[in-house]
């Protein structure tokens, strides 16, 4: 299954947020979207996953998701969005309960994803007992439990401190290397974009349009050894974004 964004326009009242976004999102790869703050990245992700309807244009799904994918388009949120009154296990089970598998099958799936994210020993902890990094791993486990075709991630690591950030980044690279999931990954961190993205889409400032798309062909697990090449990509991205970011900054100051 692939996704195609076809002439997406969106805005709120008089504010035009996205203007004419055309984009192909392939399977089995991570597409990073970067752009200055307020350019409509989060809005774009909500449109892609069907949480909001675009004013014009459409998000098209090409091919069917396999029947065992319970929730083909699955989000991972910046603020984790865990239910504080449910334990780790309960938070994962929440998204399975509506599928009518029965207790045993639910427990099997929960055990499986908790093991895959190395959370098994924390299954009875409440979110308040977990650090930010652990919370995001629970959110990742929850997302994996519904066998998504696409993971839609909105700055999943930006609420974390620098060290946790690095650790989770390695986790994500591991996970991708094992499972080859497809993802749209929003970030404002260019370092993240060049380490995780097979394709990096640069948006202009509001109203957001696609400014440039770069492809990074290095395999994810080999990137640690190619810092120079990544740095070149990063600097290229930064040059693209810097002017936009400065202009956007001034816009915000003006209100």
């Amino acid at each position: 299954m692939e996704l195609r964004l076809d002439g997406l326009h969106h805005g709120y009242g008089p504010v035009e947020v996205l203007r004419g976004i055309d984009l192909d999102i392939p399977a089995g790869r991570i597409v990073c979207i970067v752009g200055p703050s307020g350019c409509g990245k989060s809005t774009l992700l909500r449109l892609i996953g069907g949480l909001e309807l675009p004013n014009r244009g459409s998000v098209i799904q090409i091919g069917e998701a396999p029947p065992d994918s319970l929730n083909p388009l699955t989000y991972i949120f910046q603020d984790f969005a865990l239910l504080p009154w449910r334990t780790v296990e309960g938070n994962v089970r929440l998204v399975l309960e509506d599928h009518g598998f029965g207790r045993d099958e639910n427990a099997r799936i929960v055990d499986d994803v908790l093991a895959r994210t190395r959370l098994s020993e924390f299954r009875d902890a409440f979110p308040r007992q977990l650090s930010g990094g652990m919370k995001q791993r629970v959110a990742i486990a929850r997302a994996l439990s519904v066998s998504p075709e696409f993971l839609l991630m909105d700055e999943p690591l930006s609420a974390l401190d620098a060290q946790t950030h690095e650790l989770l980044m390695d986790d994500l690279i591991d996970l991708w290397t094992r499972e080859r999931f497809s993802a749209v990954y929003i970030t404002h961190n260019l370092q993240e974009a060049v380490r995780l993205g097979h394709r990096v889409v640069v948006l202009s400032r509001r109203p957001g349009t696609v400014r440039e798309i770069i492809e990074i062909d290095l395999p994810l697990d080999a990137r640690a050894g190619h810092t120079r090449e990544l740095e070149t990509h990063r600097q290229h991205l930064w040059r693209l974004i810097r002017d936009e970011a400065q202009a956007a900054e001034l816009e915000l100051v003006d209100g």
Binding site: N71, L73, D79
Partner: peptide, 12 residues
């Protein structure tokens, strides 16, 4: 954001 999360996982 929790309600949004529920919707995004297709909860009834």
């Amino acid at each position: 954001s929790l309600i949004r999360m529920g919707q995004s996982f297709g909860l009834s």
